[in-house]
Design a protein around this nucleic acid. Structure first.
Length: 483
RNA sequence: UCCUCUUUAGCUCAGCUGGUUAGAGCAUCUGACUGUUAAUCAGAGGGUCGUUGGUUCGAGUCCAACAAGAGGAGCCA
């Protein structure tokens, strides 16, 4: 039986005709049994919905049914019939049953009951078998696909930028070292320092913290490109929105100015959310209902104003608020929490970096919608951002989402060689190491822009999950690289 | 890295000001039940109270260190 063609549960529930004889395979969620009938809820990951198998204990051997326990993998052959029960429209009357993999109910960690997300994190190798994580991973896949579709439809080229890089000058945080040297017996040079000339690449290398600089090179030839790859930051960050290994989408467009850049970013975010609404209805409904349930016992003031699906609809239906850093400072300075000294960091002067409490105020209290903040002071932003004519600000852009904070960071890039070199000197960025980057400003330089979208932060928003470790299958955080 | 909180059964938790046999719900197992929906009902098993050290006649309970986890901050996507 196990070699015959199986029908996926999704297909059975969507299209199977009553009367069809089919083979299904999957994992047992629950079994309810009495003398006359056994009900098995079967899930195979193709959908969040289970197929109900109905087995007659007089027809199926008792020792077989005994092994049908939560977590076991089984194959079942039978007829599709209209269900007598009310929880489902069709079910399968089992004629043949095969146990593919047993699961000792005394030891199997996943029980047919609610588990905390913290506990499931400890058994991340089994959590895809839960409704919540199944839904999250199916949505995650849909978003990966939608990212490629969005850019492909716009004739962007996907570029694979290197994962191992030699430049440490991107200024995007601490890096993980890549080496093939024997760590217990490091070669030394005449000065007594480690001799990287003997390392695999003849120099110090590390895992990429961003594909942007290489992406710019590609955009300076191909026009419109995007990267979608893993990114590594060795920061000791312990928060609900940081990972040491995460995925980032970085489009880079020749001839785009800062406004074009913001337009594209907004269009992309709305496209992705709309794609989820159109294609992940069952999973979103489950996560939506889960959120409603979770908030049932909370005080009204602590409940979200909108639940998941309504939040998603709100984002596609409303233009993002666009505001400059300078205007944002004015809003914050005159805000209630600032006047009443409720902010931990009070806003008094132009030039201060915005803390997350300020970003949250702007997004969640003042505008109550996604906000595109632009034109930050040059001193708090990266060297490659284009200097504005005022001499104080750069054409930077951050997109802030409710509940998440910064989801996108981007800018128009400095395409003028003299201005770029001047900023590198001022900020202590080694020009020698980035000679190739500077060369693009010598040979056919062009105005261009780009941004980076933190993929997992996007998934946080689309799924309504609140901890970034729950939207990537195997999270990498300080002190944690299990599985 | 800093601040706060948490750690008691497989899971989620209760255990008041230290006092002798450590509790509940769910899960598991056994039994009952002619179609269930995280089924229901009855019963049973299950714990060196995170680790180490200290205070005390006596520590799950108080103190210290360490560890793990969570939330917030910083760094950012």
């Amino acid at each position: 039986m196990s070699t015959e063609r199986r029908t996926k549960v999704l297909e059975v529930l969507k299209t199977a005709e009553v009367g069809a004889s089919l083979l299904v395979k999957g994992w047992v969620r629950t079994k309810r049994q009495n003398k006359n009938v056994a009900f098995i809820a079967l899930n195979d990951g193709s959908t969040i919905n289970n197929l109900q198998l109905v087995a007659d204990p007089n027809q199926i051997a008792e020792e077989l049914l005994k092994l049908v326990t939560t977590g076991a993998c089984i194959a079942a052959k039978g007829d599709i019939v209209a269900s007598q029960g009310s929880g489902q429209s069709v079910e399968m009357h089992v004629k043949e049953l095969e146990i593919l993999g047993e699961a000792d109910p005394e030891k199997y960690p996943l029980q047919p009951k609610k588990h905390s997300l913290e506990f499931l994190r400890e058994i991340a190798y089994l959590r895809p078998r839960t409704n919540t994580f199944g839904a999250v991973y199916r949505i995650r896949h849909a978003m990966i696909f939608a990212v490629h579709k969005f850019f492909n439809d716009k004739e962007f080229l996907n570029i694979h930028t290197p994962i191992i890089t030699a430049s440490d000058a991107e200024g995007a945080g601490e890096t993980f070292r890549v080496t093939s040297l024997d760590m217990d017996n490091l070669p030394k040079n005449e000065e007594g320092a480690i001799d990287y000339k003997q390392d695999f690449f003849d120099k110090e290398t590390n895992l990429t913290v961003s594909g942007q600089l290489e992406g710019e090179l590609a955009a300076m030839a191909l026009g419109q490109i995007y990267t979608f790859g893993p990114t590594f930051r060795a920061e000791n960050s312990n928060t609900t929105r940081h990972l040491a290994e995460f995925w980032m989408i970085e489009p880079e467009m020749a001839f785009f100015d800062a406004d074009d850049n913001a337009d594209l970013a907004e269009e992309m975010l709305q496209y992705l959310v709309q794609y989820a609404l159109d294609n992940c209805q069952d999973d979103l409904k489950f996560l939506h209902d889960r959120e409603v349930e979770e908030n049932k016992n909370k005080k009204e003031s602590e409940r979200p104003e909108l639940y998941l699906i309504d939040r998603l609809k709100f984002v596609v239906d409303n233009k993002f608020e666009r505001v400059t850093y300078t205007d944002a400072i004015d809003i914050l300075r005159n805000s209630k929490p600032n006047k009443k000294k409720k902010f931990k960091y009070l806003i008094d002067a132009w030039g201060a970096d915005l803390q997350s409490e300020h970003e949250r105020y702007l997004v969640e209290k003042h505008f109550k919608k996604p906000v595109i903040l632009s034109d930050y002071p040059k001193d708090i932003k990266a060297f490659y951002m284009r200097q504005n004519d005022d001499g104080k600000t750069v054409a930077a852009m951050d997109i802030l989402f409710p509940g998440i904070g910064e989801i996108i960071g981007g800018s128009q890039r400095e395409e003028r060689l003299d201005k770029l070199e001047q900023r590198m000197d001022e900020m202590g960025v080694p020009k020698e190491e980035l000679w190739w980057y500077l060369d693009t400003r010598k040979f056919g330089s062009a105005p261009h822009s780009g941004y980076g979208l933190g993929f997992e932060r996007m998934i946080l928003f689309v799924t309504g999950m609140t901890n970034i470790r729950d939207v990537i299958p195997f999270p990498r955080t300080p002190g944690n690289a299990e599985f």
